[in-house]
Nucleic acid binder design. Sequence first.
DNA 1: GCCAACGTTGGC
DNA 2: GCCAACGTTGGC
Length: 137
Amino acid sequence: MAYWLMKSEPDVYGWHKLVAERRGKWDGVRNWTAARNLKSMKIGDKAFFYHSNIGKEIVGVMEIVREAYPDSSDDTGKWVMVDVKPVRPVKTPVTLAAIRADKKLKDMALVRYARLSVQPVTPAEWTHICHLAGIAA
DNA sequence: GCCAACGTTGGC
DNA sequence: GCCAACGTTGGC
């Protein structure tokens, strides 16, 4: 099983909206590196939901429930989307500042490639962040 | 609102 | 195929 981190601006599509919907479509990705990550996802993979711009923190854990298929918001047919469902909210949000300040996390894509909206997370990073978030890994 | 980082586009 | 110009993202 692989781990990921996916970003969304909460005023556009936030954690609470995903929880309300019970299942969400992760569309609108228009970056080749992010799209490659979407295509690598398997059903059952876990992903952190990160609020960019407002909050700048990890707020929940999602699971991939449908693997990459054509993005319905894309007319060109080049891009893909996946479906996700919320698994659990974090107990304590893990902020970008906390991630930057943590030696174990400073190599995360979130820090090194700030603009990448869909990025891999290593098992060690996943476990550590779950610990900081006060939830089981 | 500004600006740094960086991806993309288009002229050559 | 290079690289300057431009656009976008996202932190501050």
